[in-house]
Amino acid sequence: MAHAVSPATHGHTVETNTGLDNRKLLMWLFLASDCLFFGSFIATYMLYRDRNVQGPLAKDLYDIPFTSVSSFVLLMSSLTMVLALAAIQRADMRALRIWLLATSLLGLTFLAGQAFEFTHFWESGLTLERNLFGTSFFVLTGFHGAHVAVGVVILLSLFDASLRGKLTPDDSLAVELGGLYWHFVDIVWIVIFTLVYLIEPQ
């Protein structure tokens, strides 16, 4: 937001030293912290990718076209998230609800893809106990999926609040914070997809 006092937040902001709302600064710090969280899990995955003593291995299981499609779905949800924020900033609550719902549905589609992938891998004999790949893959992508699920809960809570009139155009910051979180989860997926799926699997 380049303009300092947007009409949407007028009257609700408390003056701060940095000019950033406390809640927005909190969200940025949380995301910074979460980088280290995913960073540690990704580092573990990279450390273990060629240390398996038995299969099935990544190269036996990955279906890159399928995961590319679900990654594309997740990336598109960032677009609808931006449209949701733009809608509440111009006080168009109907458009806000449409885009919030669309974002949630895209997120749920991604989660469904992940559930399908997990089931498929599981049935092919890959479990947490089976090998290091199973351990590090399920836990890393599982935590990412949990982040997406929390994001969907946040989006649906915003949707619900707007239906009940608890979310007004004055509260665009709430949508903006949800959006920051959502985009972050997307970006983390780009890193995971690149490092875990696209670099030639072992």
């Binding site: 090998n131 351990t135 836990v139």
Partner: peptide, 23 residues
């Protein structure tokens, strides 16, 4: 993360620190 990994190993038989599996 370290504690989650330990938790998965102890509670759900994952292999993060299991030397027999290469951990």
């Amino acid at each position: 993360v370290a504690l989650f990994q330990l938790s998965f190993d102890r509670l759900f038989d994952a292999n993060f620190f299991n030397p027999a599996a290469g951990g």
